[in-house]
Structures are given as C-alpha cells and as structure tokens.
Design a protein around this nucleic acid. Sequence first.
DNA 1: AAGGACACCAACCGCTGGATA
DNA 2: TTATCCAGCGGTTGGTGTCCT
Length: 276
Amino acid sequence: MGRRPPCCDKSHVKKGPWTAEEDAKILVYVASHGIGNWTLVPQKAGLNRCGKSCRLRWTNYLRPNLKHDSFTSLEEELILRYHQAVGNRWSLIAKQLQGRTDNDVKNHWNTKLKKKLLKMGIDPITHKPLSQLLSDYGNINALIPQSTRPLDQKHHDPSSYFSRADSSLPTMSPFQEQAASMSFMTAPFHVINEAASSSASSSHESKVHVNLPSSSTITIWSDYLVGDQQECTNEPDIEFLPTEGGEYMNSCSRLGVDLTKQRLLLLLRFLLLTQF
DNA sequence: AAGGACACCAACCGCTGGATA
DNA sequence: TTATCCAGCGGTTGGTGTCCT
C-alpha cells in the first residue's frame, strides 16, 4: 500500500489576496498545460501557494467567460426560484447561471437576496411568508401539551417580539424560529428524475427535471429585484440541464438524501427542545 | 476629520465521496 | 481492505471600502 505525498506544506505556503503576477503565472500555466492535477500547479507554475488555493483562484476568478459585473434582475429571480427548489446547493444553482460561480451566487444570496426576502416578510429558508410560519407555529403550539413546552416559550409572550418600535423587522423568538424551521419539514419538494421514470430515453439525453414553485406562490419578489421592472413569468417548471453526462442525476439523488437528513435533524432538534 | 458600524466579497476552512496506492 | 489523497462543495472569516454619526 503506497502513500501519496501531501499536496503542500501548509505552514510555508502564501495565503491571502492574489497578486497580478501570481494570476499571470496561473494563466500561463493553464494556457500551456490545461486544467488538471492542481497539486502540481504551484510547483510547475512557480507559485508559493497550495494547489487547492490555485484551483479556487482559477475557478472563482481567472476562469474564462466569468462575469464580474453585478447580478441582473433576471439572474436574481432565477437564484430565488432555484433556491426555493433546491436550497443552499450553490454549485447547482450557479451552473444554471452563465458565467457565475457558486461563490458568487452564495455571496450574493447572503449579502443581498436573503435580506430582501426578510424585508418582504418572507422566510429565506422556506420561502414562505413569515406570517404563515407564525400561523404554522400556532398550530404546532396547540399540539404540544403545556407541561412539555420549552422554558423560553413559557416565559415569553410571542406577541411582544412584534410590539417593538421597528415592527418592519420580522424578529422572532428562538422558539418561534425553531417552529418556523419546522414548517420546512412539510414543505413540498419535487425532483423528478426523468431518466429514472423513462427507461426508454437515451443515456445522454437523460435530464433531471426540477419542478420549481410557480411564481404565483412566490408573490412579489420581482418588486425587490434589481431594476424593479421585471415580472415573474408564469413558468412552473424549469429544467436543470446536465452539463456533463448524468451529473445532475447524481446531484439530485444526493439532494433527496440531504433533505431527508436535514428534516430528520430538525425533527430531532424539535423533539429535544420540546422534551418529548 | 475621526472612528465605529455595516456591506461586500475574495479567500480560507473543514467536511464528504470517490479515487488511488 | 485500508489508509490516504484529491476535488468539490457549503460555511465561515477577514480585509477593504463605504456610510453614518
């Protein structure tokens, strides 16, 4: 049994922002050798960087055809709709947007879109109105015997969280947040693997079909998008087209497992919290 | 003008599944 | 079969610029 050498000596490699000179070395290397075996890139390109760092720099910044300008309203709307369908699967979402990386999409979501949704009173995790989540919370609350309710819920009046001066901010108590996250467990999620459902289709034409929520349930997102002039199209289904053979089939079948796991974890957390 | 708060985003960290020896 | 590495991924951090008081 042989062992490979470590990819780099992390204590001696440079970290932090890349210089134009370093970028140029990567570009020259990739132009002459192509992409592959990133662990050898620092040595061959004359860089004092970890191979992993080189790969990230290339993927997120130097790769050709990457867009470096602001997200358009159309892109924002797509991100919102894909996120509602697949959650924080940034790489999957990014593949649907020409010239955007998963890092771009993730950053834009965390810095802009999540806040926009919250301002609109929409929960960025479930994409449901917070008012509905609170209503769901009330229903869950009714099912829980008084003696088993968590301490913080016993001692806090939920309505007090909305009597603050700034009522526009949808602040919730920890327990309300927990209850809100519970609704995710019952949220519908549709991934139809056409390859699995249609054995007649050729292997290279198989594609995963994600039923995105129709814009009628998304309400008025476009009001908050860049430019504010785009309307949501009534297009309930969008296809996730595979860029490589069978790739999305694997991604989405894994996705189903992830969601089940996530929902089970939430259930476990909820049961512990309510001392069932 | 100063400096604290906030927003943005490039880069890093740590985990996972598959590949490899 | 096992130990280890690699690539990919999502979460997090830290540097920098801008805004606000």
